[in-house]
Computed example of a mutant assay.
Amino acid sequence: MYPVPARPPRPVPPLVLALRRLPNPRLTGLGAGLFAAATMLALGALDELLFDGSAILYGLLFLPVSALTALWVREADLVSAPIIVPIAFTVGIVPLSGGSGGFGGQTMAVVTALAVHAGWLYGGTLVAGVITCVRKVRTMTRRHRRGRGPQGPPGPGRRS
């Protein structure tokens, strides 16, 4: 038999190289919650300061934060991402709500803002939920391909 010549490696497209350079952190559930809440609080304060509390801008900024939170949470804490995202939305909407009159007035302003901007809230939660579901299915498929289920490989005392 004749040796088969090795094919030269294909060049990697620049877009793929750029995506590989992006950070890919794996945050715990608490870390993802802190990331999302701090980011949304900062974005809400900046929105109030620079754009006088634009609800559309805040909602549009909430969607990528939801996606990043769902992408960056580690696999063991996937279920927490769709729970974290609405809490982060609520934390970030406090500067935008514009309540006055003490704690009760501020609370009512936040509740009203949540009711008015519920579409953005549901949209971001849906984004996080879909991403976490896809990640979970990919994880389960990878485990199945490796030949072990959730309990591990079949042993001498286990039926396969």
Score class of each variant (00 low, 15 high):
residue 112 T to Y: 05
residue 59 G to F: 11
residue 116 V to D: 07
residue 67 A to H: 01
residue 106 Q to T: 12
residue 67 A to M: 04
residue 41 L to R: 06
residue 43 L to R: 01
residue 122 Y to G: 13
residue 70 A to Y: 05
residue 28 T to C: 00
residue 8 P to R: 15
residue 112 T to F: 09
residue 84 I to H: 11
residue 103 F to P: 08
residue 22 L to C: 09
residue 103 F to V: 10
residue 115 A to D: 11
residue 80 S to P: 02
residue 96 L to N: 00
residue 26 R to G: 11
residue 39 T to M: 06
residue 108 M to V: 14
residue 83 I to Y: 06
residue 104 G to Y: 11
residue 79 V to M: 09
residue 114 L to E: 11
residue 90 T to R: 07
residue 36 A to P: 02
residue 114 L to D: 07
residue 86 P to C: 07
residue 101 G to Q: 05
residue 123 G to V: 05
residue 11 P to S: 09
residue 123 G to A: 14
residue 76 A to E: 14
residue 126 L to I: 12
residue 65 V to A: 01
residue 39 T to I: 09
residue 23 P to W: 05
residue 93 I to F: 01
residue 63 L to A: 10
residue 50 L to S: 13
residue 77 D to H: 02
residue 51 F to V: 12
residue 53 G to Q: 01
residue 71 L to Q: 14
residue 28 T to H: 02
residue 124 G to Y: 08
residue 23 P to L: 12
residue 79 V to H: 13
residue 9 P to R: 06
residue 108 M to Q: 13
residue 28 T to E: 01
residue 55 A to V: 06
residue 96 L to E: 02
residue 89 F to H: 14
residue 91 V to C: 06
residue 5 P to C: 10
residue 13 P to Q: 05
residue 68 L to N: 07
residue 34 L to P: 12
residue 96 L to I: 00
residue 98 G to L: 04
residue 70 A to C: 06
residue 45 A to P: 00
residue 58 Y to N: 12
residue 39 T to H: 04
residue 52 D to C: 07
residue 99 G to Q: 05
residue 77 D to M: 04
residue 11 P to K: 15
residue 70 A to D: 00
residue 110 V to H: 01
residue 93 I to W: 01
residue 24 N to W: 06
residue 19 L to F: 11
residue 97 S to K: 06
residue 119 G to P: 10
residue 57 L to H: 09
residue 79 V to Y: 04
residue 28 T to M: 01
residue 65 V to T: 02
residue 116 V to W: 10
residue 111 V to M: 15
residue 37 A to E: 04
residue 48 E to Y: 12
residue 81 A to W: 03
residue 56 I to V: 12
residue 9 P to F: 02
residue 7 R to T: 14
residue 96 L to F: 00
residue 71 L to N: 10
residue 18 A to V: 07
residue 42 A to Y: 08
residue 79 V to A: 15
residue 127 V to Q: 06
residue 106 Q to V: 13
residue 53 G to D: 00
residue 37 A to W: 06
residue 10 R to K: 15
residue 13 P to N: 04
residue 77 D to N: 05
residue 87 I to T: 07
residue 36 A to L: 00
